[in-house]
Design a binder for these strands. Structure first.
Length: 813
DNA sequence: CGAACCTTTGAGTTA
DNA sequence: CAAAGGTTCG
């Protein structure tokens, strides 16, 4: 047992006055600077400190400013100390941003804001203080999706369930969904639990939770669910936190799921309310809700598929009686046309709380819609426009391409590489998801927690040591029979002669290695230990010997991993952090185009925003429609709204008539969202050969009728118009793809065509490079030629990873 | 046991 | 078209 009252190490000594310097400054002037910079609504949101407050903050209305100013206000009024404010966000990025802005506002006084973070990191922190109460140890591991799936596969096997018919992924999805709804195994409705594995779903969920405890592990959902369980089963612990948090602030409230809502509600109750701790999710009317302030925008709710309940925000006044609702409708970001386009689009949704964004900015440029023949041409066109913007003095940092699905990104990457255009992918394949990083982490996890079977299993035969399925099976059998971790099973197995000499000695070596490393853990600095481990395990060597193209990049990633460990005091601290926050930053200082999904763009803004792929089936995405019907469509529409409102000066939409889906080309039709844009604020740019899509008459009075009639059969007027236009517009099937109509814009297009042909034709000509040549590229630096295809080279760059480039862009080094 | 080859299936968004 | 899973052969 640990003492439940163990204090978090972040506690500020109690004699310290609440952010003294600020308070003093606040008293000195009548209206402190952080208040005078606000408009009346914002100011009201900041100054209404008591009771529940809901701030409906439309895109670009100063949401973050309100949150940070509110914290500053609480502190300067002396209403709470920094460690008595709970402030939750969804992403680490948002948390970082708030800390950053707060420190600008307050000077250096943010050190003591220990409870500003994401739901998951705060949940995880609370859980570590009381781990024993939920059958964990404080050094529990946070599993990622991969570990989760492997664990579930084992359970399926144990239950003799065919994982073809009942994939582990599906079960993981179900469990995730239950956890998002705050349901422990016993709370899952039996009907739902039965849908998986011939009625074994519920049993498997229970078994999974049990296994997690044995492994001393929690998955993402547990960080909240186990927290809720902790609070419910131990009211004394809950009270401790209720007492601590004098003020609660929630960012992006529209994205909270049921579990997060329950968690917040428990914490938001006034401390002495012993009767109110119930497990009901629906009972309204809490006893004296505390000072909770939720900020959100129902029009930006885009995480329904992850369990977010827009209802949470729609029901706020009901859940928190006496709540004050404040609307922020002054947009400080976008020009008039952009804002009008976005507002009209989102007006097609029903069930909104309703806000009318307005701006005092100029109308600016109209939103453009451009059609192209296929996705390649779309990428070329956007590339050209970006070059044009660059020539006219726009910073690449102020340009973003926002896609619906990540597979769309490749085309742009290829294009940018060819053009030598600097770009960065945001939220792409994450650093910690890379195989080599996960392998390295697995080694460290086993050192840190010998019972971490999943980590053990991952690396026991990496690099290859002749310990294959057969050996592993044996270990599993022993482990399961004796209820001991695999490492212990291995220990006893090498004492017997059940193994052939070869695997036996390598297993012996693995055990000895880990024992040695663990002994070094307290002696050697953790970064050094990591290097020792990677070296002695043969892991580094494995990649050094690997001749494949990306080996160099992987070694680079390993180095970066070790480097990133320096920020932490010890191995344990590092591992604790890593599972939650391992997004690689850096490179932000460089001027580059940003490439990301619409989802990860929320909260960001750019002068120029390109939005490709506005086609039925892709955007709105077919699966959203199939699975969620009208709700799915509305969420997609909100996503479109988010996309357009990211733009300050220019929003440019695109659709292609042909797109590759599953490797083969399909014909697509323009998105219905394009049809929902207001004609007055939109310009159809001539893409090529004639009127292009839509044309002058394309927009008619019928634009807004009959939105309800969408369904599996596309019958809206817009759809039909779009189809008609497809034949009539510039996309004739017989003419060459690049058959331009002799316009100026077509001229440059034609140039591209020629370039395209040249590249295609010249592939017969072998380039001067030989496999393995060391080369230099202006943008990507040094690398080695990994593949040659005519004059197109695949190069493994030391820094940038593997890229395809045309040979003329590199020189021999 | 593991490399090489073949077949199948599947690309939606994420803390 | 790619990755992942399965099968075969050395």
């Amino acid at each position: 047992m640990t003492e439940p009252n163990k204090k978090p190490p972040y506690d500020v000594p109690s004699h310290q006055p609440a952010a003294g310097g600020i308070a003093a400054r606040a008293r000195a002037t009548a209206a402190p600077q952080y208040l005078s910079a606000l408009n009346p609504e914002q100011r009201e949101a900041v100054e209404t400190l008591d009771g529940p407050v809901l701030v409906l903050a439309g895109a670009g209305t100063g949401k973050t400013r309100v949150l940070t100013s509110r914290i500053a206000h609480i502190l300067s009024m002396g209403r709470a100390r920094p460690n008595e404010i709970l402030s939750v966000t969804f992403t680490n990025k948002a948390a970082r941003e708030m800390k950053h802005r707060l420190s600008e506002m307050l000077g250096q006084a943010v050190e003591g804001m220990p409870w500003l973070g994401t739901f998951h990191s705060i949940g995880g922190r609370i859980l570590r203080f009381h781990a024993e109460l939920v059958q964990l140890k404080s050094n529990f591991t946070v599993l990622d999706v991969d570990d989760q799936i492997r664990l579930l596969k084992q359970l399926l096997q144990a239950e003799n369930i065919d994982d073809k018919r009942w994939p582990a992924r599906m079960l993981a999805g179900l469990i995730d969904g239950w956890k998002n709804r705050g349901l422990t195994p016993s709370q899952v409705p039996s009907g739902e639990a039965a849908v998986f594995g011939n009625g074994k779903g519920g049993k498997l969920y229970a078994a999974y939770q049990e296994r997690l405890k044995i492994l001393n592990a929690a998955d993402f959902g547990d960080l909240l669910l186990e927290n809720i369980r902790l609070f419910r089963e131990h009211p004394d612990v809950l009270r401790q936190y209720q007492n601590r948090f004098k003020f609660i602030l929630v960012d992006e409230y529209q994205d909270t799921n049921v579990a997060q809502y329950l968690w917040l509600r428990l914490l938001a109750q006034a401390p002495p309310s012993p009767a109110a701790i119930t497990d009901s999710t629906t009972t309204p009317g809490l006893a004296a809700p505390k000072n909770i302030c939720c900020v959100g925008d129902d029009d930006q709710s885009i995480y329904g598929w992850r369990g977010a309940e827009v209802d949470n925000i729609l029901r706020f006044e009901h859940d928190f009686p006496g709540a004050k609702v404040i609307r922020l409708e002054r947009n400080y970001r976008s020009t008039g046309h952009i804002l009008a386009a976005a507002s009209h689009l989102i007006a097609h949704n029903e069930g909104r709380l309703g806000k009318t964004l307005r701006t005092e900015d100029v109308d600016g440029e109209k939103v453009t819609v451009t059609g192209s023949w296929d996705s390649e041409e779309e990428a070329r066109g956007i590339g050209e426009e970006i070059e044009q913007l660059q020539r006219t003095g726009n910073k690449l940092n102020e340009i973003a391409i926002l896609v619906r699905a990540s597979f769309q990104m490749r085309e742009f990457e290829d294009r940018f590489v060819t053009l030598g255009m600097p770009y960065r992918v945001i939220g792409g394949p994450r650093f910690y998801e890379r195989a080599e990083v996960r392998d390295a982490l697995a080694y460290l996890r086993v050192i840190n927690s010998p019972a971490d079977d999943l980590a053990f299993e991952r690396i026991v035969n990496v690099p290859k040591r002749g310990l294959g399925d057969a050996t592993l099976q044996l270990l599993h059998d022993i482990g399961r029979k004796r209820k001991i971790p695999l490492m212990e099973a291995a220990r006893s197995l090498v004492e017997t002669d059940e193994l052939k000499p070869k695997p036996r000695s390598s297993l012996r070596e693995v055990i000895a290695n880990f024992d040695r490393w663990r002994a070094q853990r307290d002696v050697v600095p953790h970064t050094e230990l990591a290097e020792i481990v990677l070296d002695e395990s043969g892991y580094t060597e494995m990649w050094q010997k690997d001749r494949s193209a990306d080996a160099a990049g992987r070694l680079e990633n390993l180095k970066e991993l070790v480097r990133s460990m320096e920020e932490f005091e010890n191995l344990h601290g590092f591992l604790e952090h890593i599972s939650l926050v391992m997004d690689r930053e850096g490179g932000a200082d460089e001027d580059a185009v940003s490439l990301m999904t619409l989802h990860s763009a929320k909260g960001l803004e750019f002068d120029n925003v390109f939005l490709p792929g506005w086609e039925e089936g892709l955007f709105p995405h077919q699966r959203a429609l199939d699975e969620q019907g009208r709700a799915g469509l509305e969420e997609e529409r909100r996503l479109a709204h988010v996309g357009i409102t990211r733009a300050r000066k220019r929003a440019k939409l695109f659709f292609a008539t042909n797109r590759r889906i599953h490797g083969s080309w399909s014909t697509t039709i323009p998105s219905r969202f394009l049809d929902e844009l207001p004609a007055d604020n939109v310009e159809i740019t001539e893409s090529k050969g004639g009127s292009g899509w839509g044309g002058a008459g394309g927009y008619g009075a019928s634009r807004f009728d009959n939105v309800e009639s969408f369904g599996s059969s596309y019958s809206t007027p817009g759809w039909q118009r779009a189809q008609a236009n497809r034949g009539r517009g510039g996309f004739d099937e017989t003419g060459g793809r690049y058959d331009a109509g002799g316009r100026s814009s077509a001229g440059s297009r034609k140039t591209m065509t020629i370039e395209g042909e040249l590249i295609a034709k010249s592939t017969g000509t072998e380039s001067d490079f030989v496999l393995g040549d060391r080369v230099f590229h202006q943008k990507f630096g040094y690398g080695n030629v990994a593949k040659i295809d005519g004059n197109k080279l695949t190069i493994a760059f030391e820094k940038a990873g593997e890229k395809k480039v045309v040979d003329s862009f590199v020189t021999k080094a």
